[in-house]
């Protein structure tokens, strides 16, 4: 076992440099065999489709051999950027992202503070279990639930009608649709979103609270000076992840409701790719839209992460890289 371990500047083990390649291959081949299925799946369903984005530069027709499709270079992008529907989809996407940040984002933090304030372990885990549950339901069911409660034939309107009041149509109103979307996202994901903040809250050292209380800090000041700074890195990380993902707003959620409120209110980039690319058969333009979204999304993630590093926070790379 006399091997020289080589570590990088993070103190991570990089390699056993003194061991020749053949020896390492002989030693590590079981590990390589184990990862073969995962690598095969990633190549087939992530990396090859990534290369497949060259369709955006082709005049692509399905059912002819891939390379027989002619190259048109940026023509598809010209068509895409000349399409008013695309700009509408982009604008809608950004509006939904902004509303999500404003209205959804603070809720899991507040819920986590509430759950954390419950001292009875049984009550706390009961509430956690109930709050996590909607995350595991499909969007079909969640949208169905909203229809049954707030929709035109839902419980709310049933109640209004029985009391002689005018019905309200919340689910098919393009104006209110934005808020219905946020409401659905809150119902489904806010509870689940607490999980990471709760972990951060539990990690705060009790001694800090104790000494603050001894120094006379009340509940409010302990919240402001200990609790919130304690979970600040996680809040910033989650914010970055959300910003980096600004062009993705729940595809299935919109797809399911696009018919009832109309494309003007519910068209987002992902549904644009599906309806204009796949359904209408403009494959290459659809891929161009998808590629636009992917490239801008990548820039957003990298920029948000850079920004986090500038603020002195860990950002994404540090948390996933080891």
């Amino acid at each position: 076992m006399a091997r020289t371990a080589v570590t990088d500047r993070h103190g991570e083990l990089v390699a056993y440099r003194s061991v020749p390649f053949v020896t390492r291959l002989r030693r590590d081949y079981p590990l390589l065999v184990m990862i073969v299925p995962a690598v095969a799946l990633m190549l087939l369903f992530i990396y090859i489709p990534l290369l497949g984005n060259v369709i955006a530069f082709m005049d692509y027709v399905p059912f002819v051999p891939f390379l027989d499709n002619g190259w048109v270079w940026f023509e598809n992008f010209e068509r895409l950027f000349a399409d008013g529907d695309f700009w509408l989809a982009l604008a809608n996407t950004l509006v939904f992202t902004a509303l999500n940040l404003l209205l959804f984002f603070p809720i899991p933090v507040m819920l986590a503070l509430f759950v954390h304030s419950l001292l009875h372990p049984w009550l706390r885990s009961f509430l956690q279990s109930v709050l996590y549950l909607p995350h595991f339901l499909s969007w079909v069911i969640v949208v169905g639930f909203f229809q049954q409660t707030l929709g035109s034939a839902g419980v709310l309107n049933q109640f209004l009608a029985q009391n002689g009041l005018d019905p309200v149509n919340l689910m098919q109103n393009p104006e209110l649709f934005k808020f219905m979307i946020v409401g659905q996202t809150v119902w489904k994901e806010a509870g689940w979103g607490t999980i990471i903040f709760l972990a951060a809250l539990t990690a705060i050292d009790d001694a800090l609270y104790e000494s603050a209380a001894m120094d006379g800090a009340g509940v409010g000041r302990r919240l402001w000076h200990i609790t919130l700074p304690g979970i600040r890195p996680i809040i910033i990380l989650m914010l970055i992840l959300r910003l980096g993902d600004a062009l993705s707003v729940g595809f299935e959620q919109f797809l399911l409701q696009r018919n009832s409120v109309g494309p003007a209110a519910a068209e987002v980039l992902d549904t644009y790719v599906y309806y204009h690319g796949v359904v209408a058969g403009n494959w290459s333009v659809g891929v161009a839209a998808g590629l636009f979204k992917g490239v801008v999304g990548l820039i957003l993630i990298l920029a948000a992460n850079k920004f986090a590093h500038l603020l002195g926070e860990d950002g994404i790379y540090k948390s996933t890289r080891r």
């Binding site: 290369l51 497949g52 690319g277 891929v287 998808g290 990548l298």
Partner: peptide, 8 residues
């Protein structure tokens, strides 16, 4: 990388 529907 965001998954892309059509190439997939």
């Amino acid at each position: 990388f965001a998954p892309s529907i059509i190439p997939l």
